[in-house]
């Protein structure tokens, strides 16, 4: 068991996080015990952040106690691993507008005391602003299958991220436009993001995800 980032481990080619709720699985992942500590395997085909780690992401500054704003949390697959990392002192606000997935995420929130559900549209941060006013956000994470993903990300960053804080976005080429060529789409999105961020690195996610790019950035 080798630690690659704080709270994130690697062993025999698998990425793992320490299970914040020992004995419980979230999405059918394998539980692995070493000594008295239980880890959850993180599936790169189910989580874009894990795919990026597998593809050699160099830097990932997340750690215990951070507050995270997660846009497009869905059923909480990725969020559950972030929840493992930030532990009980941290907090993740999981925003999603799909009632169907939100139902599952609420159950996960009941199990994990560092997760909070927010059933809102990420394009309208003013709707959930009031819940975040006492929590300084250190990481803005976004994975929306949406046009205007970069604009939505910037809008939220302006409201909630202070200078120097971390932004991570999974960009999906297809949902922006299916005809433009993929490289061009990525370039355009990066241009947009550069208005608010300094880009640290961007990683294409194949073979785990088609036409996806994950960018790690610092707020300007």
């Amino acid at each position: 068991m080798k630690q690659i980032f704080e709270g994130i481990f690697s062993s025999k080619g698998k990425i793992l996080t320490k299970n914040f709720t020992p004995g419980k699985k979230v999405y059918g992942e394998k539980l692995v015990k070493t000594g008295s500590v239980e880890y959850r395997e993180w599936n790169p085909y189910r989580s874009k952040l894990c795919a990026a780690i597998k593809k050699g992401l160099k830097k990932l500054e997340i750690k215990k106690g951070l507050n995270v704003l997660y846009l497009g949390v869905a059923e909480g697959t990725t969020a559950s691993h972030l929840s493992d990392v930030i532990e009980e002192k941290g907090l993740i606000f999981g925003v999603d507008l799909s009632q169907r997935t939100m139902k599952k995420f609420i159950e996960l929130c009941e199990d994990r005391e560092n997760l909070v559900p927010v059933l809102e549209n990420a394009e309208k941060p003013e709707k959930y602003e009031k819940y975040l006013k006492n929590s300084e956000i250190s990481l803005l994470y976004q994975d929306l299958s949406q046009r205007k993903q970069a604009q939505i990300f910037n809008k939220n960053a302006k409201k909630f991220l202070k200078k120097g804080k971390l932004g991570i976005i999974a960009i999906k080429a297809k949902s922006i436009s299916s005809t433009e060529n993929i490289e061009k789409i990525f370039e355009k999105q990066k241009e947009e993001l550069k208005k608010e961020f300094d880009i640290i690195e961007c990683i294409p996610l194949q073979p785990y995800e088609k036409s996806h790019l994950l960018c790690v950035m610092k707020k300007k």
Partner: peptide
């Protein structure tokens, strides 16, 4: 933090 969490869970439950 716990209060906020309970409140938001309640709210989301009601909304779904």
């Amino acid at each position: 933090k716990d209060d906020l969490r309970r409140k938001l869970i309640q709210k989301a439950r009601k909304e779904v």
